[in-house]
Design a protein around this nucleic acid. Structure first.
Length: 106
DNA sequence: AACCTGACTCCGA
DNA sequence: TTCGGAGCCAGGT
């Protein structure tokens, strides 16, 4: 992968305000790579455990937690709740989604 | 080079 | 609203 993409994703993720979340596709698009949602996911999976990035704010497009059922998922859930994100049944209301001036579907 | 896999997304039933 | 299948891009085997 290009360093630019990695850096871009880092920037985007780091720019997600506390109390809000963003989907992989959202991050990918903001990074300038519209169809690279999976790539973002892969990047997240490759993040060092000591990363400073708020990766817990990055979730699926439908608000579901991809790591639900895993230790990391528990941590993610805990951190989100800690930041004020309402997680219901491993699901986050779309209202909590980060909106950098974009809109999904009509 | 071909095939498989994935922290995804969208469309249709 | 929930479930299932196809589409997508890149990397790994």
């Amino acid at each position: 992968m290009n360093q630019e993409f990695r850096d871009a994703v880092y920037q985007i993720v780091a720019a997600i305000p506390a109390g809000t979340v963003a989907s992989y596709g959202q991050v990918a698009r903001q990074a300038g790579w519209p169809r690279h949602a999976r790539f973002v996911g892969r990047l997240m999976s490759q993040l060092p455990k000591g990363t400073v990035l708020p990766w817990h704010r990055v979730i699926r497009g439908d608000g579901g937690l991809p790591l639900a059922g895993t230790p990391s998922g528990e941590v993610q859930l805990r951190r989100l709740a800690e930041e004020g994100v309402a997680v219901v049944g491993n699901r986050v209301p779309k209202r909590c989604f980060w909106a950098p001036g974009e809109d999904r579907r009509s």
